[in-house]
Amino acid sequence: DRIFMTRTEALEFLLKAHQTAVDKIGHPSHKQTPADHAAIEALDRLLLDVRARRVDQFQINASAAQIIVTD
């Protein structure tokens, strides 16, 4: 599946995904793992790359739809 978004929409989408990941590892019942921190770092890099126009398409994980940034 493909989803087309403007750059602004894609950045909002990534910010929400980032916040969800941060909230998940901050929850008291969740045991933090290196994979959790790696996922947040990957989202940080992706946010910067989309914002800087170095990336025009991405996929958060293998089961997610491919996001295509349109400007």
Rank of each mutant, 00 (worst) to 15 (best):
T70M: 14
E41H: 11
D49T: 02
H18G: 02
E9R: 04
E9Q: 14
D1K: 10
D71F: 06
A17G: 02
L11Y: 08
Q59A: 05
D44G: 12
V50Y: 01
K16Q: 04
A64H: 11
Q66W: 15
R45F: 05
M5K: 02
K16A: 10
R54Q: 06
L14Q: 00
L47W: 09
R51E: 12
I3S: 03
R45I: 08
R51N: 09
D71M: 09
S29E: 14
V50G: 00
V22Y: 08
D44W: 15
L14P: 00
A65C: 08
R2W: 10
Q32Y: 15
L46K: 01
R51F: 12
H37N: 10
T6Q: 04
R45P: 00
R53V: 08
E9Y: 03
Q19L: 07
K16F: 09
Q66L: 15
I60K: 01
Q32P: 15
L15E: 10
L46I: 07
R53A: 13
T20N: 13
A21V: 05
P34F: 10
I60R: 00
T70R: 13
I40K: 03
K16D: 07
M5V: 03
T20I: 13
L47E: 01
A64F: 12
F58L: 02
A21D: 01
A38W: 09
Q59S: 10
H18L: 13
S29I: 03
L43S: 01
D56T: 12
A35S: 10
D23H: 10
Q59N: 07
L11V: 09
Q32V: 15
F4D: 02
E9G: 07
I68G: 01
R2I: 11
I67R: 01
P28N: 10
D1H: 10
L47P: 00
P28M: 05
I67Q: 01
D1Q: 10
F58G: 00
A17S: 04
I68H: 05
K24Y: 06
A10W: 00
P28Q: 09
E9A: 08
L15K: 14
D1S: 06
P28T: 05
V50I: 07
V22M: 14
V69Q: 01
E12S: 15
V22K: 09
M5N: 00
T33F: 06
H27L: 10
I40C: 03
T8C: 06
V69Y: 02
T20Y: 11
A42L: 14
T33Y: 08
A65K: 10
V55Y: 02
I25C: 03
V69I: 15
A39V: 13
S29Y: 08
R45L: 10
Q66M: 15
K31V: 15
V69R: 01
L48F: 12
K16C: 06
L14C: 00
P34H: 09
D44H: 14
F13T: 03
I60S: 03
F13H: 09
D44F: 14
E12N: 11
Q59M: 11
M5T: 01
I67P: 00
L48D: 12
V50W: 01
A64V: 11
A52C: 14
A21C: 05
Q59L: 07
V69A: 02
E12V: 10
F4S: 07
H18C: 06
A62H: 12
L14M: 01
H18Y: 13
I3N: 03
S29V: 04
G26F: 15
K16H: 09
F4I: 09
I67S: 00
D56P: 02
A62D: 11
K24R: 14
L43K: 00
A35F: 08
I40A: 06
I60V: 09
Q19D: 06
R7V: 14
I25M: 12
M5D: 00
H37C: 08
H37Q: 14
H30S: 04
E9C: 08
R53H: 15
E12Y: 10
A35K: 08
Q57C: 06
T6N: 08
A65I: 11
L11N: 02
P28G: 09
Q59V: 05
A39C: 06
F4G: 02
D71S: 09
L43D: 00
Q57T: 11
H37T: 14
Q59K: 10
A65E: 11
H37V: 14
K31W: 09
A10G: 01
L11W: 04
Q59D: 03
A52K: 12
V50L: 06
A65G: 07
A17Y: 06
A17F: 07
K16R: 14
G26D: 09
A52T: 11
A21Y: 13
L43M: 08
I67L: 02
A64E: 13
A35C: 04
Q32L: 15
A52H: 14
R51M: 13
D71C: 05
A52W: 11
F13E: 03
A38K: 10
L15V: 12
L47Y: 13
T70I: 14
I68K: 05
R51Q: 11
L46A: 01
A35N: 12
Q32R: 05
T33N: 14
L11I: 14
V22L: 12
V55M: 04
Q19W: 07
D23F: 03
S63W: 09
A62M: 08
S29R: 02
L14I: 13
D23R: 10
T70K: 11
Q66S: 10
K16N: 08
A39G: 07
S63T: 09
N61A: 04
P34K: 09
A65N: 07
K24P: 02
F58D: 00
T8E: 07
R54S: 05
L48Q: 14
D23C: 07
V55S: 03
A42R: 13
A64L: 11
Q66P: 08
D23V: 08
P34R: 04
Q57I: 14
Q66F: 13
A17E: 08
L11T: 05
Q32D: 15
H30A: 02
A65R: 06
R2A: 09
H27M: 12
L46H: 01
K16P: 00
I3W: 10
A38D: 10
A21S: 03
R7H: 09
A39D: 08
K16M: 11
A10P: 00
A10K: 00
A38Q: 11
P28E: 11
R53G: 14
I40D: 01
L48R: 06
P34Q: 12
D56G: 10
A21R: 04
A39L: 15
D44Y: 15
A10D: 00
E12I: 08
S29D: 08
Q19R: 13
F58C: 01
T33Q: 04
K31F: 15
D23Q: 10
A39Y: 15
Q57M: 13
D36H: 05
A10M: 01
P28K: 07
P34I: 10
I68V: 12
D1A: 04
A64D: 12
D49Y: 04
D71R: 05
I25R: 04
A10V: 04
F13P: 00
T8V: 15
N61F: 10
L46M: 07
E12F: 10
H30V: 04
F4Q: 07
R7Q: 08
A17L: 12
A35M: 09
H30Q: 03
H37P: 03
E9K: 09
A42G: 06
A62C: 08
D36W: 05
G26I: 09
R51W: 12
L15M: 12
A52R: 10
D23N: 08
D56H: 14
T20F: 07
A42D: 10
R54M: 07
L14E: 00
R51D: 10
N61H: 13
S63N: 12
E12T: 09
V50K: 00
D71T: 08
R45C: 04
R45H: 10
I60L: 13
Q66K: 12
R45V: 07
D23T: 07
H27V: 07
A38T: 08
